[in-house]
Design a protein around this nucleic acid. Structure first.
Lengths: 205, 205
DNA sequence: GTCTATAAGGTGATAGAC
DNA sequence: GTCTATCACCTTATAGAC
């Protein structure tokens, strides 16, 4: 029941192995579709041993989501008030696209959770995430007022950036199915498309 | 085992009730997260009675996906070679957004399936869907050659349209969480944002 | 056509030996 | 800390009465 406190090297190693395995399994099958057995196998532990480290399947899922929130929000955090507005937005788009390429499992973990109504994460969405988005939307509004950016709704701009970039991680199976056998390394094409697209759409005319 | 062939009124009614209930349940919890019990309850039938109409849970899921493919593809089908290119693309965007508003369950049904690797639908993606996309991408390429549209990769343009519009259905929980309590009817704002956005990005300069 | 009852196997979690 | 064994429950699907 009580989790081990004074962490030995082996405890740290096993905890990490469990979280890594859980990310792999949860991102692929969703919470309900994943079994403790699968995670234990992937982590190289027995089921009871895994449940010695975490009290329940839900506890693993929660720790994963909470632990990844910072990584998830980092690219938006970096949006810099003092930079060139269009460059800043494009930079955000490209950072987010890089994250979809490098951390697709993390993206799908969140996608699975949100598509199903975000039951285990709604508090974080209406907390840290909303606060950060509100803050950055004010910055974008200022840029627009100063005539440095086309007049667009900042919230829907951010939604569009999330949608277009995460699409390449979350709907990877579809993207590959459509592009196959034409293209393999489609991320470079996506980056070029998105950069040009956002530059054209956001430039003041 | 054998499904009823000469369909009586009650059989038609029950089959429809099952598919309607299955759409509700599958779109909310995914395939693995849904139980036959839930679907039977939602359809107002007993579990054995439901399994008299469909041989298995998977059969219901398959019939749902196959039956919705046409609806799913209709907005892209309507893309008209002879229309004004920018208007045609914007029209497609708005039809797709309207579909996200009016048929969010259908959108989430596909989203759940694709996020998890599209195991039960990959053939349709690499079949009908890919053929249609290939066809329409040729049309878009022609428009670009004729100088009627900005030079963009047509495949990634279509991906961006899917992403930005379906986002409002698939990630509804997040959109509401961010916008709450500011806005309720955000679809009108989304439509305005997307129309202006695609017009600016696609106009020849 | 619809029901009750139940088979058959999976699943989260625990007990207790080592 | 880790294991084997097991419990209690859930879930898909079927059998057979009505």
């Amino acid at each position: 029941m009580t989790r081990p406190r004074p962490k030995t090297r082996i405890q740290i190693k096993n905890t990490r192995a469990i979280l890594e395995a859980a990310l792999e399994v949860f991102s692929q099958h969703g919470f309900r579709g994943s079994t403790v057995d699968q995670i234990a196998d992937a982590a190289g532990l027995s089921k009871p041993n895994l449940l010695y480290y975490f009290p329940s399947k839900e506890a693993i899922h929660l720790e994963l989501l909470a632990g990844l929130m910072d990584t998830w929000l980092a690219p938006l955090h970096q949006l810099n008030t003092d930079g060139d507005p269009v460059d800043e937005i494009v930079g955000y788009v490209l950072r987010k696209l890089a994250m979809a390429r490098e951390l697709p499992r993390e993206s799908r973990l969140f996608a699975n959770e949100i598509v199903q109504g975000a039951p285990r994460i709604i508090d974080q969405i209406e907390g840290d995430l909303r606060d950060l988005v509100d803050e950055k939307c004010k910055v974008i509004r200022d840029w627009i007022k100063q005539g440095k950016l086309a007049d667009v709704d900042p919230y829907h701009l951010i939604f569009s950036i999330w949608a277009t970039t995460q699409h390449y991680a979350d709907f990877d199976a579809q993207v590959r199915g459509i592009l196959h056998p034409k293209k393999d390394a489609h991320f470079a094409d996506a980056a070029e498309f998105l950069e040009n697209f956002y530059r054209r759409a956001l430039a003041v005319s």
